[in-house]
Design a protein around this nucleic acid. Structure first.
Lengths: 157, 157
DNA sequence: ACTGCTAATAGTCAAAGATGGTCAACATCT
DNA sequence: AGATGTTGACCATCTTTGACTATTAGCAGT
């Protein structure tokens, strides 16, 4: 297993209950995994981003720390944010996948629907010879249309 | 026997029971068969497509892999038929919509999922300057990937 | 209290390593 | 000849490490 994945898993196990945040010491963690301290930053910047539903705070110097905060939002708020601010004009398959999986993690949609959405957004759905940037544009439009459909579900009851 | 056929067979033997997926390392497999790594891609792209009931996921970089996901044997017949015969290389938005609605009508999928699928397939998702015929091709690929995802439901790891 | 030094932290960035992907030329069937 | 298969050169992405940088708390000297 990749080091990064192990560290990611380890960090996620730090949450015991419903706490909003956990704290860790970068150097301690690095020593525990016998890796370069900057490896911790790598894990944080690739797996604990706002797209994944996390925010990071930290302080250097004596008594320094890294705090990882889980972002809590209402489902409709999340959808609004994704539609109006996050997705934008273009989006990569990777980013789109992260967003879909996070929607499921957060309970806004089922894991099955997340898979369904990701299936539509995966690179294989666009394996035709057109410029890559255009694919990201189509993907963004597709994703937004699906998000819109999700938003309408809720508001119909 | 052709190399491609041997590789195809080898990969199919990786499934031991009813697992939904297997993983492999492209370079290892290529070395085993003493062929160019890209030969593996050729086999995957010609014999493990959605039409054949497979989906591919992969990751590059250290610890990279190729994951092949297989449609479940007990998958809904209707979905199989659509994947293998009905959809084809290209499909119009109109046809796709009718197809989704029909699936919901006959209870194969929920109305909500039908809406979600159609949202992804509607013309607005592809309002970029590319040749119209290509759009129908992308739509077909997208639809097939979603159908595959639906057919996979119920398969536990 | 104020200043400045030091130790203790964390952050950034670029290079190297480890994989997989694409594409076009060439080869071999049918 | 056309379809299918094979290869290799070049590209893209992900991970890991290390050198260098930035920030903060505590303390010693005044």
């Amino acid at each position: 297993m990749r080091l990064s994945d192990a560290i990611e898993e380890f960090i996620k196990e730090l949450w015991e209950h419903d706490e909003a945040e956990v704290e860790l010491k970068r150097n301690e963690l690095a020593e525990y995994f016998r890796c370069a301290p900057s490896q911790i930053n790598y894990v944080l910047s690739t797996r604990f981003t706002p797209d994944h539903g996390y925010a990071i705070e930290s302080r250097r110097g004596g008594g320094g720390f890294i705090r990882i905060i889980r972002i809590q939002r209402e489902s409709h708020e999340t959808l609004r944010y994704l539609l109006n601010e996050r997705v934008g004009e273009a989006i990569s398959a990777k980013e789109a996948q992260i967003l879909c999986l996070h929607l499921a993690e957060q309970g806004t949609i089922s894991h099955e629907d997340a898979e369904l959405m990701y299936a539509a957004l995966r690179p294989q759905s666009q394996s035709v010879p057109i410029p890559e940037p255009l694919k990201d544009v189509i993907r963004a439009k597709t994703l937004k249309n699906m998000l819109l459909s999700l938003a309408q579900r809720g508001s119909q009851q």
